[in-house]
Design a binder for these strands. Structure first.
Length: 367
DNA sequence: CGCCAGGCTGGTAACGAAAG
DNA sequence: CTTTCGTTACCAGCCTGGCG
């Protein structure tokens, strides 16, 4: 009975337990938050969750939980964080004052950083003005959403660059931006194409739909096609709820990446239903363990690489911002200098035509 | 009563095998 | 090679029971 009491997990996840879980999810985020759903990825996720649970349960001051519980807990944390951040964002947009809602989620930024693409539209809008000023057509969309979409594209581009999915190139110049002719059925669309370098472009289609099945006032569907120079195309289908009642914004990103997983053997995974041979079971088990070890190493390696890439991307981003600021400054200076020269020339011509001495002459027609 | 964990359901998207 | 269809995972949203 006593043992049962000890083993029996606590009703709620304590803050310590949550922070342990968070640290482990952070550690394995590149596997667990990967949007791919092929058999290999799914099996890897499953095993990663199990490994995570094992690691979790080996920590002191946590009660025993199985991987399903931990997974659900992580889902709940994500859902709560999204809800709170969506609410905060909505409040901020509404009042344009930072109300600083008292959040009880510790480290929501950290949680958000684990799944940045899912959180992007939920974070508070940036303080500084967006560089791009949207034209009148974007007025159909919720305040600031257009800019957020543009920034989201930049975020996507950054992720793609990090995954080596595009060659080096300057980011985001608006190529075209038009509002397709509204067909008077309360359905409007906004199409924007962003070009990246010479070979890559991202086409974004925003559509405002009337509610279809549910009783939501309005959905905005964001359809994003990314074409890279390698020929593969991305489709990101998203929706944002602009409903005042509904706090949640669902914004998954489906990455159709051509990039391969870190090197690991081609042994079929346990989830493969076709795997039946008894004779090779033992060796397969051994191979599986080996593979698991390799994969752990690969994950670790991948994490290091990704971390490295994140920092490199950040530096590149800052460098680009510097370049753009310099360019902007240079253009401004040019314009000002031209203006200055124009007025100086004008002054010169005036003083030539109308020398001060001419005003001292007597009136010509005077007797 | 509010919060939380966890179960359940329906919608969506990707995958992969089978069929055309 | 393309299309179709079943399977699977993920997610949002709802509900319930338990706890404080």
């Amino acid at each position: 009975k006593m043992q049962n009491e000890i083993i029996k997990p606590a009703k709620y996840f304590s803050e310590v337990e949550k922070s342990v879980l968070l640290a482990l999810v952070e550690k394995y985020k590149y596997v667990l938050e990967c949007k791919k759903s092929d058999a290999r990825t799914i099996a890897l996720k499953q095993r990663t969750w199990q490994a995570l649970a094992h690691e979790y349960n080996s920590q002191p001051s946590v009660s025993l939980r199985d991987f399903k519980q931990l997974k659900k807990c992580w889902e709940n944390i994500k859902a709560r964080t999204k809800k709170i951040m969506a609410h905060e964002r909505r409040e901020k947009v509404k009042r344009s004052i930072s109300p600083l809602i008292n959040t009880h989620i510790i480290g929501k930024e950290k949680i958000a950083s684990i799944m940045p693409e899912q959180m992007y539209f939920l974070q508070s809008p940036p303080e500084e003005d967006s560089e791009y000023q949207p034209d009148a057509s974007s007025q159909v969309l919720e305040n600031g959403l257009y800019e957020r979409v543009q920034q989201y594209i930049l975020c996507l581009a950054s992720i793609h660059r990090r995954n080596n999915l595009k060659p080096e190139g300057r980011v985001a110049t608006v190529v075209s931006c038009k509002l397709s002719s509204p067909d008077r059925s309360s359905k409007e669309a906004l199409q924007v194409t962003y070009r990246f370098g010479l070979n890559t472009c991202i086409k974004v289609q925003l559509q405002v739909h009337p509610p279809k099945f549910r009783s939501l006032p309005m959905n905005i569907y964001i359809h994003c096609i990314i074409l890279s120079s390698y020929g593969e195309s991305f489709v990101v289908s998203n929706r944002e709820l602009c409903d005042e009642e509904k706090e949640l914004v669902h914004f998954p990103v489906c990455e159709g990446t051509s990039q391969h997983e870190p090197s690991c053997s081609d042994v079929r995974i346990a989830a493969d239903k076709n795997y039946r041979s008894k004779a090779s079971q033992e060796s397969a088990l051994k191979k599986m363990h080996e593979e698991e070890h390799h994969q752990q190493m690969s994950i670790l390696q991948l994490q290091l690489i990704q971390m490295n890439e994140v920092h490199v991307a950040k530096i590149q981003q800052i460098e680009r911002e510097c370049e753009m600021a310099e360019e902007e400054h240079r253009i401004k200076m040019e314009v000002l200098n031209k203006k200055k020269m124009y007025w100086e020339r004008k002054l010169q011509s005036i003083t030539k035509e109308w020398p001060v001495s001419s005003f001292n002459r007597p009136f010509p027609n005077s007797p």
